[in-house]
Design a protein around this nucleic acid. Structure first.
Lengths: 228, 228
DNA sequence: TCGAAAGCAAGAGCGGTGCTCTCTTTTTTG
DNA sequence: CAAAAAAGAGAGCACCGCTCTTGCTTTCGA
């Protein structure tokens, strides 16, 4: 189905890419709510009905953009991780956090699309799951490497969370002590709380030097998952 | 302007309230994006054009709902704070956090409206600022009372953040040590990161026992602002 | 090779949206 | 009591997502 022979298949790939490109342009310019299939078609010089041959609905187009956005921020995180490979665990963690923040500031509408409120009555299909996990995997990797190195310093976990921690660790951190899993998940969510508040204006007249504030907060998050 | 004499003024108040009520109904049922002025008018048995006498645009109606939502979650936080007044600082903090989380789970669309991505090309006017501050004020109050009591245990603040901390403290925590202000703001943002991730599905297949997970994370946030 | 099948583009059209304008009615006010 | 202000209703504009039908072109199998 995908890699067919003819020139028609090639054209389909190109048109699909052009649609996504123009859609991404409009998304960046005006936000997800103002992304219009008709406007995309208009800009591409085709009839709006023709566009439905490529994306059966507006939500499907949005889903494609969501996956791209997850991949984009995931790549940014991975790149920062690689660049900071030689630094200490806390520095490495902070660098990744800052890369995610900078990606968010550079792509606010894409960020809103994936980490803000789900678009209008829209619920993301499972297709997005692997892409969505990339940033998390980077963070897990840092903690994993730190454990192989100097080791982790973790706060005690209440008994009621032990089963949850075991389950989490089995899922995505089987080579780490179970207690680290909930801390990691919490730090992951909190990271996006910090970024979202800055991006969506909650820090208006509250935080001025946002880069410095964020750097410090990210460092504290690192301590929270046991990095030293 | 507001409290005029006649029956017409009274009617205006009632109609305005009815519009907001129906709008809130639709918001809760379908989300902000599907909130339609025409549908509200239809449900109220009036012409859609008549509705513009009360709210000059859809965004103005949305703004009114946003303020109501901020007040609603603020009230929930304040109620939880009062109810936990006799408990220790950490317990009090955790109770407020849990109240906010429960409000969010009960009013997901309202939550998305105020803490998710800003609605479609919309930026909140300054009118919303006082209402938006209520939850934050509750959290500040807990820390303030704790300082008057057993005292705070705070991590050291890097030098680059000292001016920012001084400014923050002067703004909203003048009777607290400056170092607590950034920690408080960070915890505030992180709280909503935790809630947002749960609400918007990021914890899908990651966190199972979400109440327990949240309780623990909220407790850790309390420690982060120096509560003991 | 050639005809059938499948893929694609285009146009018209349906029901919906936010919003504006005009016209009429009702209430308030000088 | 008349003038002014406020409110409702309807038509209409430009846009939206989406569907259906109608032709055209490429692909594929007998």
């Amino acid at each position: 189905m995908s890699t067919a022979h003819g020139a028609r298949a090639r054209a389909r790939i190109e048109v699909t890419a052009a649609i996504k490109e123009e859609a991404r342009r409009q998304l960046a310019a005006e936000g997800a709510a103002k992304l219009s299939l008709r406007a995309v078609a208009r800009e591409l010089g085709m009839a709006s009905s023709a566009l439905y041959r490529y994306f059966p609905s507006r939500d499907d187009l949005l889903t494609a953009l969501i996956i791209d956005a997850y991949d984009s921020v995931g790549e940014a995180a991975e790149a920062a991780d690689t660049a900071a490979a030689d630094a200490g665990p806390v520095q490495r963690w902070t660098s990744v956090c800052e890369a995610v923040r900078e990606w968010a500031l550079a792509h606010p509408h894409e960020y809103a699309l994936i980490y803000g409120s789900p678009v209008p009555g829209y619920t993301a299909p499972d297709t997005t799951v692997p892409a969505a996990a990339r940033v998390g995997l980077v963070l897990i990797g840092i903690v994993r490497d730190a454990r192989l190195g100097p080791g982790l310093a973790l706060p005690a976990l209440p008994a009621e969370l032990h089963p949850e921690a075991e389950r989490m660790a089995a899922d995505f951190a089987s080579d780490l002590p179970p207690a680290v899993a909930p801390a990691l998940v919490a730090a992951w969510a909190q990271l996006f709380g910090l970024i979202g508040f800055e991006l969506f204006g909650q820090f208006h007249r509250v935080v001025e030097d946002r880069a410095a504030f964020f750097r410090h907060a990210a460092g504290q998050l690192a301590l929270g998952v046991g990095l030293r």
